[in-house]
Nucleic acid binder design. Structure first.
Lengths: 355, 355
DNA sequence: CCTGGCAACGTAAGCGCTTACTCAACGTAA
DNA sequence: TTACGTTGAGTAAGCGCTTACGTTGCCAGG
């Protein structure tokens, strides 16, 4: 078989040039056993001389394994206006992507990413299924029944949500614990009693978990708690602002502290409090959740709870890799710890040390 | 050929079930010509019944095209300390990733991402080469000679740097123009004369370009300019702070405005100015570059220049897709316009409208 | 009635690897 | 000496698609 110089070399050329069979070439390239040192050298030299890079498709086909994992998420930014590309909520996913990339690369796999936008989720997921060995799916990017279909074809690990088919591997953050911790901090370190909670979307599992953490801390301190959040802010800045307005309108005196379901709402709330001439943390202490970058630059800087999104991404991919290695293993779930980040808005010293 | 239920269906089963040949099945799935409507329906039904998803590796092998493009970048965050995962510089890449993902998905391709960390760049790139049809490489992730090798095997488009092999497609932002525009704004709208420039790393092409834009604007206004930046801040927050200290130490009166090479340095500088009791923008106007999220929350909010990183990512992938379609086409380069973002730090009204 | 053209398929040869099976040669133990 | 295990390789059958060629049947034109 002759080839023009432009064609990429194949294992056959390498075999011929080195004087061995394709089987030996293949073994040298991967296994590392079943041949002598001299053979290895000779094969490697031939490969280098020809500039041969094994064709991944052929390899995958023969091995029935692609060495690629997929990450499916939803691109919120696109749903919004143009400049929403700067939206903070985006950061969330970006960290996950980074973590996933890292874990995949270090496992010797490559990672494919794809964002669902609106209605094409299933379509997209289907097209991925053929390309990857397994899929990490971020909460919200696929409906439950779509998940069922996809997970029947390929191993799936769910990320950041509990509302999922019970049989799938899962990785998430300890929303409840984080929320409880920050509430306890307000309660015991700062001796505050009259606390309010601003929830995210009513149906968000994360928001629910955070509310539960809040109520648990309150109850443990012997304080009365409602069964439902007082106000909802939809996890957005403007929603947070609106929620605080409602809160202030509904009470004769403002609460001594507001635990926000996330940072964006807290930032929105901060503006409203300022407009109402309420000092933070003097009159009202404020905490957020997520530790987005902007929270470090607000005045006062925002006390918050950091979710290890990057770790979550990493852990998710690692979990997937393990699953790929042993499809029969028991379901694996990981709830990663969150971290309390103390800054000024709760009443701690401005430069963020522990109190 | 019998198969257990667990095995994934192949085109052969679909062919058999539908009563047609594999060629027809293949045609129905992709081409859309050369068969009747009844045939299509029957094939599609069989495929659905079997839950068949075409094996991507086999397809790629036969077509000699993977339908996957790669994005190679360097993960700065990992080079730093642990908590650098929150580093602003990261955002840069994230936007690019998003844009690239979007363009790839909309072109019907999938996108593979990989981050070089330290020395393994070439290794990683090589492993990608076999998996993708083409590669988008972000500035700094590969050395020049590594680029040469890789681009010999697979089409490459360079992103965000000019210091590249001249024959490769290129996509970047108009650093020079953006810098010139923001300088001109200071000059003509705010009537400031005594401007200083804080550069990034001395060897950064971006920093150089921005300095050139600055000097061009100065020269056009008939003001004296140095051939080299007065001070360097390495594109970091602490570097920016240090640079401002130097600047103030070197002059008897502070400049009326400081044009920072990027936002991070500007944010660092803001702190130093405050410590020196200098009002921004009253005493010293300040501008940045990049429009990172944090810049919106500083006090005063930071006037800056937005780089369309997302567009750059999108354009890069689109360029690659075109290149793939026509390898002989002339080299394509795109320099995307930057956008002046006016906020309070330059002296414009606090709520960021045009002056 | 014959011929040519076209639409609608079918045949089967790859695509470039991996790997189960073989096999030869060479000890080594009995 | 014989039987047998090891080591270092080669053979060739896939892996599941795509697609260049054929083939068949049908219809219009001559």
């Amino acid at each position: 078989m002759t080839r023009s110089v432009n064609d990429k070399a194949t294992i056959y050329e390498v075999a011929q040039q080195s004087g061995f069979s394709t089987a030996t070439v293949s073994r040298v390239m991967h296994d590392g056993v079943g041949f002598s040192e001299a053979t290895r050298t000779s094969v490697l030299e031939a490969a280098a001389r020809l500039g041969w890079v094994p064709n991944h498709s052929a390899r995958s086909l023969a091995r029935r394994r692609t060495g690629i994992v997929g990450l499916l998420f939803s691109d919120f930014a696109d749903a919004d206006a143009e400049d929403a590309s700067q939206s903070e909520s985006a950061l969330y996913v970006d960290q996950v992507i980074r973590g996933a990339e890292r874990a995949a690369t270090s496992a010797g796999d490559a990672i494919l990413i794809a964002a669902t936008r609106g209605r094409d989720g299933l379509q997209l997921a289907r097209s991925l299924v053929g390309k990857v060995d397994g899929l990490v799916v971020l909460a919200g990017s696929l409906a439950r029944r779509e998940l069922e279909e996809i997970s029947r074809r390929v191993p799936v690990v769910l990320m950041a949500t509990h509302t999922a088919p019970q049989h799938l591997d899962f990785v998430g953050a300890d929303n409840r614990g984080g929320s409880r911790t920050v509430t306890e901090h307000l309660l015991s370190e700062h001796r505050l009693r009259d606390l309010a909670f601003v929830a995210g979307p009513a149906r968000s599992p994360d928001s629910k978990e955070r509310f539960v953490g809040f109520t648990r801390a309150m109850a443990a301190a012997g304080l009365p708690t409602a069964t439902k959040p007082e106000v909802y802010g939809g996890f957005t800045e403007t929603g947070g602002a609106r929620a605080v307005e409602e809160l202030l309108a509904a009470r004769r005196t403002p609460p001594r502290a507001i635990v926000f379901g996330n940072d964006e709402m807290a930032i929105g709330g901060l503006g409203v409090l300022r407009r109402h001439k309420l000092r933070v943390p003097g009159d009202v202490a404020v905490t957020g959740f997520d530790d987005i970058a902007a929270g470090r630059h607000t005045r006062p800087a925002l006390t918050t709870v950091r979710q290890p999104m990057r770790d979550i991404g990493e852990t998710a991919v690692r979990t997937l890799v393990q699953r790929l290695a042993d499809r029969a293993a028991p379901r694996h779930t990981a709830v990663l710890p969150t971290e309390l980040v103390l800054r000024a808005s709760c009443g701690c010293s401005a430069r963020g040390g522990r109190p």
